[in-house]
Design a protein around this nucleic acid. Structure first.
Lengths: 190, 190
DNA sequence: TCCTTCTATGCAACTCGTTGCATAGCAAGC
DNA sequence: GCTTGCTATGCAACGAGTTGCATAGAAGGA
């Protein structure tokens, strides 16, 4: 039940409409939390009822009005409370791993295409993350000694999460290489 | 909707009762697919209705009867068909990443305990996987040249999935170290 | 001109997954 | 003797997430 909290974080970083949130969930936030516009609209409505967010109607020309949401005090409190609650380490769900073990009872070689496709997706994601890192987090040459520049928590924490995404994609690409090498040792048919 | 398929794979590897499946989902299968006994019983019943599995009642002394499930031809066909369908690379859900980005609006240092706890969980899992690998996949010294031993697809594929789990845990531990180093650069309070 | 895509929001129906509870006998430890 | 935990299955209710559909005007390409 962390969708509310993911929305709160995103709105604290920058207020926006449900539609805009949905697009963010396809990009930066979506790297570690996915949500469709349906869920977002539904949850936003509930959050509004609960007083977690404030809405401002923004009329637009030629398009439907936009509702810009921002975080209210109650929402901030709810986020803070959630941050202090322990959470369980997330449970994993890897369809591909099920398929790989299942391939033993079918045709292992037939999975090669599929695994290659997944590897390409992870390569693309990695390239995308690395481009984002260069764009947003490249700092000018640090002075040799001297005091550090004041730390911007928001930026630093976004960066460390992005580094997590990068590490994950690199790990996946390496593992999928391993999987491909393993699959290729079995001939077609069973 | 891959729970059916995960169950099929598990039953092909070894027939068993719903209860036994639930325990396997806490162990080896659960490393990449979680399920509670509720889901398993419900899905097993549906799979039985659809003719994917066969049930054999095994009376026991002093305990409730056990229903041992095994995969029927229809189930095997369903698995094979699923294996040949492409799947989307799985969408991620990392509560912890949401928390880390959210910490910028609260107290970053307060997250340190939580992150350390998660790191410990991942260390434990890693140790567990490594022990399992030594136990199940240590091969006797390979002969210098000569022909390879016949390859056992089931075993090899189980092993490569386990190696994926190991790589994942190592990556997480390293990343959480990075997160801790980042969090520690911010003082308490905001 | 028509078709598609984008912005922007939303309902309804459905499936999937979680939580709490219930039964029931046996074994082990305090 | 009592509590806890294990085997073994299951119902009921709820909450989370997905899919299909609908509206509606603007912009851009075939």
């Amino acid at each position: 039940m962390a969708l509310e909290h993911a929305i709160l974080v995103s709105l604290l970083e920058k207020p926006g409409s449900g539609y805009e949130l949905a697009r963010r969930f396809e990009r930066s936030i979506g790297y570690f939390w996915t949500a469709t516009h349906q869920q977002i609209y539904r949850v936003l409505k509930r959050m509004d009822n609960d007083g977690w967010v404030e809405v401002r109607d923004i009329p637009q020309q030629g398009r439907p009005d936009k509702k810009e949401y921002s975080v209210a005090d109650l929402g901030r409190a709810a986020l803070s409370s959630w941050l202090h609650d322990p959470i369980e380490p997330e449970s994993v769900r890897h369809d591909l791993a099920v398929k790989i073990r299942g391939a033993a009872f079918d045709d292992p070689a037939a999975l090669i295409r599929e695994v290659e496709r997944h590897r390409q997706v992870h390569r693309d994601r990695l390239a995308h993350y690395l481009a984002g890192e260069t764009r947003d987090f490249t700092v000018p040459e640090a002075s040799t000694a001297g005091p550090r520049a004041p730390l911007d928590a928001e930026r630093e924490l976004q960066h460390v999460v992005l580094r997590g995404g990068i590490a994950y994609e690199r790990m996946m690409i390496d593992w999928l290489d391993d999987v491909l090498a393993t699959l290729s040792r079995f001939g077609p048919g069973r």
